[in-house]
Every structure is written in C-alpha cells, then in structure tokens.
Design a protein around this nucleic acid. Structure first.
Lengths: 352, 352
DNA sequence: CTGTTAGCGCATTCAC
DNA sequence: GTGAATGCGCTAACAG
C-alpha cells in the first residue's frame, strides 16, 4: 500500500470514495503519488469483501454458453439487461449451467464461485440441479420465463394464452390438419413424434405451456389434438431436422412452430421440397425474432428486450434491499404476415 | 461460520478444497452439517481476495453493451470465448467501455471495479481512454483486433491483406468505378464521404486497415483511388443510410463494403431501387457472417469464433503465469458468391 | 478534517 | 491428520 508515502491507510480509501472527507490538497497529493507509483486504485475484490457488493449481475444460461449465443433471443435478452446494467454501472457476468450429465461436483462450480450480487436465471428446465445451487447462494434471484421460485421475482409472458391465440388464427383460416413442432420438451436429447405422456411430463415449461395453449384452441374448436414433433434441441441443424421429420411423417396444411427458429427452418424445408407458403403450407412461429419480419413469418411477438430490462431492474431493486416478490407478465401480440395469409382449401401437403 | 458445529475454521476450508487432507468421515460430517445449516460453501469474494484468482474473464466492448449485441460478429466472438471458458470453469464478464463523451469519472468505473482475472479488449479505437484504465489494473490483457499493447498478447487477422484481395477480385472482374463503404473511421459520429485526411487519421484501426488494403489493390492496378463513404456507426439504420448515401452520390458498378452488415444493407438498398445484383451492382462484404451465405454475398471470411477461442486461451495462459507476448494472426479467405459472379460491362449504376 | 482500529471470509502457513 | 494464527485489501465507525 501507498501509505508509505506520507499518509495513512484509510486516507487513501477516502481519497477514492469520499472526496468530501478529505482536504482538497491532501486528496490531490494522494492521487498524484498513487499515479506515480502505479497504484491501480482500490482493489475490487477487497472492496467487495468489505462492502458485500460486487457490481455484477449474473446471468445463468441453460447448458453451454456457446449454445446460448446461437439463440438470437438470448442476444435480445442480454441487450435489455445491458441497457439497465450500464445505467447502474453494473457489469454482466455470464454463467453457464452445465448439462446435467456433467459430474455434479464440477457442474456447479462456476455457479457457486460466481462473484456476483445476484442471479438472473433464463430458460431453465424444471428440476434442473442448477436451481438448487443458485438458491443455495442465498443471493437475490430473478427467474426469466420461470420457474416461479418461492420468495423470488419472476418475469415472463403468458405463453399458453399467446399460443392459444396463434392456434385460433390457424383454425379461423380453416386449417384442420395441423402439426406442432417444438424444440425440446425435456433435456434428454430425444426427438421425433412426442407421446401424450411425454408432453405431460415435459420439463421445459415454456414448450409445454405453448403446446398446452395450442391444444386449448383445438379443444375449443372441437378439432382433434394435433400431433407434436420434437426437434430435440435448439440448434439450427436440429431445427431443420425436426422440420423435415414433421413434413415427412405428417400430412398437414399448417404448422404451429413453438419458436421462430423452428418456423424459419420449416420455411426452408418447405421451400426445398417445393411447397408453397402459405398455399400448400401455412406456418406460425413464436418470438418474432428480427429475422421473422424478413421472412414474412406470422408469429407471436414477445418483448425479449423488455424481458431483460425488467429482470435486471427487478434484480437491482432486490439487491438494493427492496422487499417483495414480483411476478411480471409482459404482453404478447400475434403478428400476421405472409406465411398464413391464405385460407386453407383442404389440400394438405402430403408426406414425402 | 459453521465451525460452531464441531470442528475448526480451517477444517471446513479443507473439506471443500483439499479432500485429501481430511479424514473421509470428518469431511462428510462437515459437508453434511453445512448443508443442514444452509451454508453456501466458501464465499467467492473471500476466496478471491485470498487466492488472487476470481474465475472470470472480462470482455471489454466498445461503447455500450446494448450496441454490442446488435453486432452478429460479437455473438460469434463470445461464443468462441465461452467454449474455452466453460472448459476452464471460468465465467465471462461483459464490461462496457462507455463513450468518450461520458464524464470521465463514471466512464471508467465499471472497468476499474470489474472483478476479473484479466481482460480481453475488443474493437477498441486507438487512444480510447478505456485502454489506460485497463492497463492501470495491471492484469493480463489480450487485445482482439488490436491495438498492439506493449507486453500483452493480441489476436487478429490481416485486415489489410484480406481487403486487398477483395478489391483485386472486383478489379479482375473489370470493375473500375468502385465505391468503398465503411462503418465509421473515428468515433465522432460523422458520416458521408470521407476526405483523404479523415481516412489518414482514422482511429478505428480495422476500418482503416481495410481501406488501405482496398487502395493497395487499386494502386497496383493503376486505377484511381476509390471514394470512401462512412456510415457513421454500426447500427442497422446507420448502415442502411450509409448505403443509400453511397448509391445516391456515386456512380459505381461495384462496392467494397468493409463489413457484411454494410454489404447486406447495400443489397437491400440496391433491391429497393431496382438495381440488379451483380449485373448493375456488384457487392463484396467482409466478415462472412452467417447471414452472408443466405444472401449470396461475396465476402472475406474471418474466423470470429476462433478469434474468441484464441483470445481466451491466450488470456488464460497469461493468467496461469505463462510468460511471453504472442501475436496471433488468423487466416482469412475470400468467399465468392452470387453478389459478384458477373463481369462488369461498363454500364455503371447511376445516382438517383 | 485526520488517523486509528476492527473485521468482512477465506486459504494457508505452522505447530501439534 | 488437525487446530490456531496470520494477512489478502479494503471500508466504516470511531476517536482525536
């Protein structure tokens, strides 16, 4: 420490944090000699230990971070978080929540060791062990898209209601042979047609809620339960494969894709086999990613950036000591574009 | 602390970090009572203070983080970093490097307070004050795409050489009336046609290097220096505006766009005014973003993900105590697609 | 205004 | 094997 240069220990601390508690010249001299000696200023770790505040928000993402960056939605979410974080001079720390197959000890390491003031948990399947780790830290937590954690805030949308509306749209257009395409119902890598039981036991709350919403609409309309095909994951390759599977095995005039990534893959798959959209195949997505507009995709818009903003604000408030458990539900909106702008005629696209 | 429950202070530390230095049952009992008492395990801040290692890499991004997520290249970079970081059980902390117009005190706060083991600095213009802050911390630093910092490693590509090749490609196709479109030469918000002097004093090294490369090729070919139009920033809106400006003010048969985002904006602008690509207008981009392939864009491929991987590895090595300053230059490659697959005829697209 | 004191939670010596 | 002492760098409270 630089107190060797004249003053005492605490004085230099004041020089940095409490300019008012020091004479102007004293402070100037301290800062000056600090610069001369190459003292980098108060050590953040020491300060953190003392104050209990680090200045970083943790964002816990499913599986590997490297996947997360493939998902355009995650970028929007982070963007929202950043906007709020920057204002508060707070950094954003990305914490991967490893696959459950990883050895337990190692898997929780990053979480348990993450130097943050609180956590935001995104897209975590039910019963994921990482939830326990996060809770164990006894820091403020905000979940995004659930799960609802007792005593913690949460932000999300009404996935079920929004999906219901998407399905109603298709039904109103006259579609009766409709397929449902989801990314994954549970993180076990399975793909293909999903049984009723698999849907019922799905651990991905969001996918499950959307499927439920779709079914609601079919039940209302007195139309039979639509078949559900699972891509097995979120990657572009898996999405494309799922789309192909659906088109190969089902005779449908329309598809309810539970995410835009799936819907976009479906559009490509349809094009590659010469299906016209929406004449031969109508497609509805979910999310309204930036790419959806360009592709003319009818989809459910959900405000990802706002989700991030809200989550960050909620977390910051909780860290700041504000009490209360908030559940924020953001609005969604069905955006009708070219991929469904057509009345179904009854001539279903047939399997290959 | 939980030593009230039987054993002493250090024992519980051993229980977590040195399983070998404790009897099996002792350790089991400690961990068990810890769980019962809800002890979250060693406090990361305390540990960090003691060991000097935090378990997080800082990524310093230009301007605001919220912008950063608009840039598809940043996502690829982060992806590469994450792949390496995850393996090492290291978190990634995003640090915004505020605009220079922000009050100095506040602007450096996040950097100086960031609790990380080292920094990766991306796309920082020359003489940006944030560089001083980073250096002041006396932590390991790796710059990505420069600037070269004495005593620190750096990873990048040969922007000038790659750009030269892109320009040669256009020249070989017979183009003589070529425009250059760049995002920004210096972070001062200026846009429009850039003077020779503005190019010479550009603070964005990457843009400057690419322009130089383009010019190299024109000099080689004995063709006059191409005009440079500056979009003024990286956003979609600015890119589009820059594209319009170029097409409005210059009579060109081809454009060298210094980034794919610009090239894609150009493609849209061209389409909206009925210009055929490549017949009326040839376009070459730079980066080879995922979207480039879909758009049939001829472009220079640079391995963004690998850049991230390399940077993270280099930083981890340095943190690990490995000495040496490395400069890693990754390879690039010209990818020819539809946007230039045509010989120029001499009939230049005319300004509106 | 200034200097002194105490401890934030931990990992690591060193004795036992 | 185990326990006790030391200090990582800092800030807040207090005494001058």
């Amino acid at each position: 420490m630089a107190e060797a240069v004249g003053v005492s220990h605490a004085a230099v601390s004041y020089a940095y944090n409490r300019p008012d508690k020091l004479s102007k010249q004293q402070r100037a001299r301290i800062l000056e000699t600090a610069a001369a000696l190459g003292y980098p200023g108060p050590n953040p770790t020491g300060r953190g230990l003392r104050t209990g505040k680090i200045g970083a928000l943790g964002l816990v993402l499913t599986d590997s971070l490297s996947y997360a960056f493939e998902d355009p939605g995650v970028a929007l979410l982070m963007r929202g978080i950043s906007e709020v974080g920057e204002l508060a001079q707070i950094a954003l720390t990305l914490l991967p929540a490893p696959l459950e197959t990883t050895p337990a000890a190692a898997s929780l390491d990053t979480l348990l060791r993450g130097v943050v003031d609180g956590f935001m948990v995104y897209a975590m399947p039910d019963r994921h062990p990482v939830l326990d780790s996060v809770l164990r830290r006894r820091l403020p937590v905000v979940t995004i898209d659930g799960p609802a954690l007792k005593g913690h805030s949460m932000v999300g949308v009404d996935d079920r209601g929004a999906a219901r509306e998407a399905a109603r749209h298709l039904l109103a257009l006259g579609h009766r042979d409709v397929g449902v395409l989801v990314s994954r119902l549970s993180p076990d890598g399975r793909s293909g047609t999903a049984s009723h039981s698999r849907v019922a036991h799905a651990r991905d709350r969001v996918m499950k809620a959307r499927v439920k919403g779709y079914r609601d609409a079919f039940a209302e309309a007195g139309v039979g339960v639509p078949p559900v095909v699972e891509a097995g994951g979120f990657s572009a390759a898996q999405s494309r494969a799922g789309a192909e599977t659906l088109l190969d095995t089902r005779r449908v005039t329309a598809v309810l894709a539970a995410t835009d990534v799936l819907a976009l893959a479906l559009l490509e798959a349809a094009a590659s086999r010469g299906l016209r959209v929406p004449e031969d195949l109508a497609v509805v997505g979910f999310d309204d990613l930036p790419a959806a507009a360009g592709a003319g995709l009818t989809t459910v818009r959900q405000p990802m950036t706002q989700k991030g903003q809200q989550a960050a604000r909620l977390l910051l408030d909780t860290i700041g000591g504000e009490p209360g458990t908030h559940v924020v539900t953001l609005p969604t909106e069905l955006v009708v574009r070219g991929s469904t702008a057509h009345r179904a005629t009854g001539s279903a696209a047939s399997p290959r």
